[in-house]
Structure formats: C-alpha cells, structure tokens
Amino acid sequence: MDAVLQCTGLRRAFGELKAVDDVSFEVGAGETYGLLGPNGAGKTTAISMVAGLLATDGGEILVAGEVMTPRASAAKRHVGLVPQELAIYPDLTARENLDFFARLYGMDKGGRANRIDRVLEVIGLADRAGDRAGEYSGGMKRRLNIGIGLLHEPRLLILDEPTVGVDPQSRNSILASVEDLATDGISVLYTTHYMEEAERLCDRIGVIDRGRLVAEGTRRELVSRIGEQDVVRMKVVGDASAAAAACESVEGVGSSDAEGDEVVCLMDAAAGRLPALLAAVGTSGASVAGVQVREPDLEDVFLHLTGNALRD
C-alpha cells in the first residue's frame, strides 16, 4: 500500500502544553483515516501541521513523498483542506469562491473552468453557482466549503470536524459525500469526536488523547484489542434474581446481575451462546420477554484506553 501521508514522530508544544507528542501514523491511498479524540486532544494541532499551517517542533510529515512544512508549496498541492469553520467568502458567489482558490493553487485557465464546473456538479450547487454564498442555506455553505477543498484534486483531503454544529440532515449529506470520496480513491484524513462517524466512515482509526496516539487500527481491531465482552440485557417475567443466578452457569458469562426486572450479562461471544442463555433463564422458572445484545463500541474502547469519556 502506497502511503499518501506518512507522519513520523510529530511533536508540537505551545509553551508548557504538549499539544502533540510523538504521533506517528500513515494514510494509504484511497483510505479514510479517522483521528478520534475528545476536544483538546490535539487533533486540530496535528492536522494543522499536516496541512502546513503550523510548523512542527519535531518529526516528519511526507505527503505523497514530499516533505510538508509551512513553506512547502509542492507538498501543499497534494493537500485539500476543509477547515472546521466555514471558510468561504460570503460576498462572493460559489463560482467566484472556487475560482479564487483555484488560482491560488496555480490552476491554469482551461483546467480551472472545467474543474469548477465539475466540482459544482459534485456538490450540487451547479444551478446556484452565480448566487452569493452568503445567501445559501447552511447545508449549501457546508457543501461549498468541502468543494473548495476538492477543487485542485488533492491526493489527501483533510476534513476537520466537518459536522460540528451541523443539523442532522446536512450532517448526513456530508457523511455521504465523504463516503463517495473514498470510492473515488481520494485519501481522507478525518477528525471527529463523534465515534459513530468514525465507525461509519473510517477504514482505520487513530485514537488520540492528550497529544498522544494511544491506539490505532480498524474498528474491529481496536475493539478486539481490548477484548471487551458483549453486553446482553434480558427483560424477564418472573424472578429476575433467580434467572440471573441461573445464567452464571452458562459458558463464557463473566458476570450476571439482576436489575429490576432485567438481567444483565457480560459475556464473551454472546452471539453463539444466546440459546443457552435463554434456556438457562427458562430453567429458573422465569420467561424472557425481550433481549438486547450490544457490541462494545469505540466509546468503550476509548474509556478503556484512557479512563476518560469521549464526550464531555
């Protein structure tokens, strides 16, 4: 796998605060890589360095083989940035916004026009291209914001928390367009503190906390790495305590407790052992009215790795 982005030993401090501390990761071609962490974990500092907005204190960043620094024009050509806040000129039209940034990326005249049309098409603003961006709806502005990042056909697109403060509908359309990008073969570096987004979009995820990359891998890898048990919650009719006691004997069950009229079991590989569990409840004289099995999620992983909750 050709790495489009290679970060090795990234460090950056602001005064005493080590915002990013020895972080290394790679993003492969066509891969969507998520940086997951709570607010203030160092995500924005990390991608600011990757985008060449911020100088590093140490470490190396290679984008498509080129060294990235704040003065590295060659590397910057390979990167498209979609800042967290809207970064568009409200008094310019969508087309003018795109044209301006296309020029900054040194695109020649012919290529520029074609590419702008194409991007307008992709972000669904072709028929509103002549209107001022300030008059757009929130979702349209967001799409334009992303479109500008795609304009110069970057190898790597950096999306910094693109869904913060966005209504559910726009959020869905943003997530859908990121999924489309992946199928187009663009590498995406995506930061978020929403684990659902990371789970849905990212091929691989780096978990970052207090400036350090604490774990990395596919969602499955991450989850299995901590060996978390499944959570089975059964609503029972009858004596819940007796049912819970009966469940303890089932193979793989770590713990089984009664909570009101429910029995909550923590167990390995719950999927294959549900029949046995139900049977155990039956032997206690109670019957099962409902079952809920939950896989451990990144939230649990994060909690496990850092002792902190992902969200405040």
């Binding site: 600011s48 970064a87 568009i88 000129y89």
Partner: peptide, 11 residues
C-alpha cells in the same frame, strides 16, 4: 472569516 487556514494551506 475562517478563510485564513485555507489561504495558508494553499501552495
């Protein structure tokens, strides 16, 4: 306006 990062990210 939020556009400064974008300008800085350009080559």
């Amino acid at each position: 306006q939020g556009t400064l990062p974008r300008l800085l990210a350009a080559p």
